[in-house]
Design a binder for these strands. Sequence first.
DNA 1: GGAAAATGCGAGTGATCACTCGTGTTTGCC
DNA 2: GGCAAACACGAGTGATCACTCGCATTTTCC
Lengths: 217, 217
Amino acid sequence: MSEDTPEEPKPRRRQARGERRIAQLLSAAANVFCTNGYTATSTNAIAREAHVSPGTLYQYFPNKEAIAIELGGRLLHEMRAAHGQAFTPENLTLPLPELLDVVVDPMIEFNCENPVFLALMHGSEVPGRIAEEHDALHASLLTSVQGVIAHYAPALTAEERSRIADMTFAIFKGGLGLVLAAPAGAERDATVAELKRVLLRYLSPLADGSVTTTPTR
Amino acid sequence: MSEDTPEEPKPRRRQARGERRIAQLLSAAANVFCTNGYTATSTNAIAREAHVSPGTLYQYFPNKEAIAIELGGRLLHEMRAAHGQAFTPENLTLPLPELLDVVVDPMIEFNCENPVFLALMHGSEVPGRIAEEHDALHASLLTSVQGVIAHYAPALTAEERSRIADMTFAIFKGGLGLVLAAPAGAERDATVAELKRVLLRYLSPLADGSVTTTPTR
DNA sequence: GGAAAATGCGAGTGATCACTCGTGTTTGCC
DNA sequence: GGCAAACACGAGTGATCACTCGCATTTTCC
């Protein structure tokens, strides 16, 4: 929730304890959502995880969905920030391998540190509101990727560009699952490197001016 | 204890109607699981979708989990059959583009015709029994992919081979999501072709004898 | 035809869940 | 200190869910 909205009939006085509780509840919710999924998670379980009574939980959130909305909203906000930092105009001029580093690494890091993000954004069991915001972020990311592709291969049609961007993102998503499944450390790093290798091999022919729809063999 | 029936403690006489009902219930369950997910699906909703009373449903399945088990088991069985047909020894000798056709097409087709498969196998909300069987199938598929990779690039270490197989499968999974999201027809075909292009570009360097762990930049 | 088994029904049952409410405690402000 | 508001609690409430049970109907076998 932003603080500059004029439609706030609830000017809360106490903030220190309250904000702490909200953060505590969201953190607990992230843990439980992550392990059980949204639907199978009970509000009582969230309260228990936060060492708080159910009544206290409902003092800060009107219902279960609002918890996911708030949590998802915060994650989406962070994600958008990372996204904006990755797809800067100057980064767009980097050679492909370096561009991949600059774009992939922050995204991977974010998801490693917030595994609940994938859990919340992926399932069809999440409340519609989250799904909408996620779709918006997804579209925004796709547009950025399309921009990169257009920069590397200006000759492509919009349809081809769109398809390649979709596929690039799907590859990343699939690889992300692998990375999250790998234990943090050398194995995870190797998986990330492999993911970048996939993307590099898939995308580097674009820079050569070869048309993707023409079989080269 | 006194009854020593080895496998079938339930000799059902009537089979025509019963088997029909079971198929009907499983089909209904597939629909509802597909749209709502496993956890959010109620047994009453399955019965309603099948135009059957809740009591009738529980005459054929002891509980909700058993429905998913049976449905998942049948799908896994079909999937295993398709898998076995794809990874035949003679197919292994095909050149990579043809091998991709032979392996990818049936898998895509199966998932297009049984979208509930992904829905059931993917979520962490599914009963543990399904997850186990799915893990077994997953491991089996990975072994096959590793076999192919070993054939194309015998010089790789087991670790590299495993990582490449994992990544290949992750790419396929990601692309599969795209394919299922695309409307059936030309767009879907184009997406499948793009997926094969990704896999081809990722895997074809293996056949050239270049070592993947050496940076080529 | 008639017994027995299989099939079918749907209201009912206990458990669980999201959520509330009455009450007690802590904190900010004078 | 004292008051009001924010905070905290946890037993309780209505709804929903997975699942049952008594009974009616259909099918099979003789």
